[in-house]
């Protein structure tokens, strides 16, 4: 049963993604230009991290190859969020304001899945590929040397990270439905990403605790990168799993609660 439901949703999403791709291909030059622009932007961002080391020897205990790996991991999460979630977050206010949300809600599929992943934005595919190339390059040249355990831990940490981001996204979707006139919800998401841009080790001790156990931004990029470079730590993976489940469930509860209060604007 569950497998059937997942299969059905996947089939539907694939249709939506196909439509997104066709739409993006209508403006092919623009599509390739934005891929190029994002790749250039990625490279300049990489130079920022490298430039730290013209003055510094380590940044909060991170050496240069490790910090570059950190950037690769951060950009992987960021670009995945941008490709899958961002266009949908931008769309939700419009859906609520025009009442088109009704048309989504009456469909016999999970509104959460549909509203989360309906549209794709291909602009950041450039950054995603560049981030993978960076990580592969660091690995191939032996600058980072993850074994199977590190790699498995890294994948799990990445899953935790994406779950947390999706929970935050769902919370913002709920806010948009609840407040109706909320714009710039994506700004909040980007503010959080701004905090994740550097390893949380740069923060003073007490803040680091807050960013691990209260606002779990440490799990977005720092933990996966640390596991990739320094080996898995059961503590952080366990705490991460707990936080991801907690925030995931809370966000889902809030989302359902917000939807119950939704009064249609008439579509």
């Amino acid at each position: 049963m569950a497998g059937e439901a997942v299969g059905k949703h996947l089939r539907i999403l694939l249709q939506f993604w196909r439509a997104s791709l066709i739409q993006a291909m209508e403006y092919r030059t623009s599509f390739f230009l934005s891929m190029l622009a994002n790749t250039i932007d990625f490279t300049v961002g990489l130079a920022q991290y490298a430039l730290f080391f013209t003055v510094a020897e380590t940044v909060a205990g991170w050496e240069m190859p490790q910090l570059l790996a950190f950037y690769g991991v951060f950009m992987t999460v960021f670009s995945l969020h941008f490709i899958f979630l961002y266009p949908n977050l931008a769309a939700i206010s419009r859906l609520v304001n025009t009442g088109t949300l009704d048309l989504v809600l009456v469909k016999p599929v999970s509104a959460q899945v549909l509203l989360s992943f309906r549209e794709l934005s291909f602009e950041e595919v450039g950054s995603f590929l560049a981030a993978q190339a960076l990580l592969a390059g660091l690995w191939a040249t032996g600058r980072i040397a993850p074994g199977p355990a590190e790699f498995a831990g890294f994948l799990l940490a990445l899953l935790i990270s994406l779950t947390l981001i999706h929970a935050l996204f769902l919370f913002l979707l709920g806010l948009a439905v609840w407040f109706e006139k909320l714009e710039n919800t994506s700004d909040l998401l980007w503010t959080i990403f701004g905090l994740c841009r550097y390893p949380t080790d740069v923060f003073p001790r007490r803040w680091r605790w807050v960013f691990t156990a209260v606002v779990p931004i440490a799990f977005v990029a720092t933990t996966p990168a640390a596991i990739l470079c320094r080996g898995p730590s059961l503590d952080s993976l366990g705490l991460g799993l707990a936080m991801a489940s907690l925030f995931g469930l809370m966000a889902r509860a809030f989302w359902r609660w917000a939807l119950r209060g939704y009064t249609s604007a008439g579509g």
Binding site: A56, T58, A60, G194, R197, Y198, V202, P204
Partner: peptide
């Protein structure tokens, strides 16, 4: 703020 914290955490040459 994040940047200045990063710089303060740096082992400088």
């Amino acid at each position: 703020l994040v940047l200045v914290l990063a710089w303060l955490s740096v082992t400088r040459q």
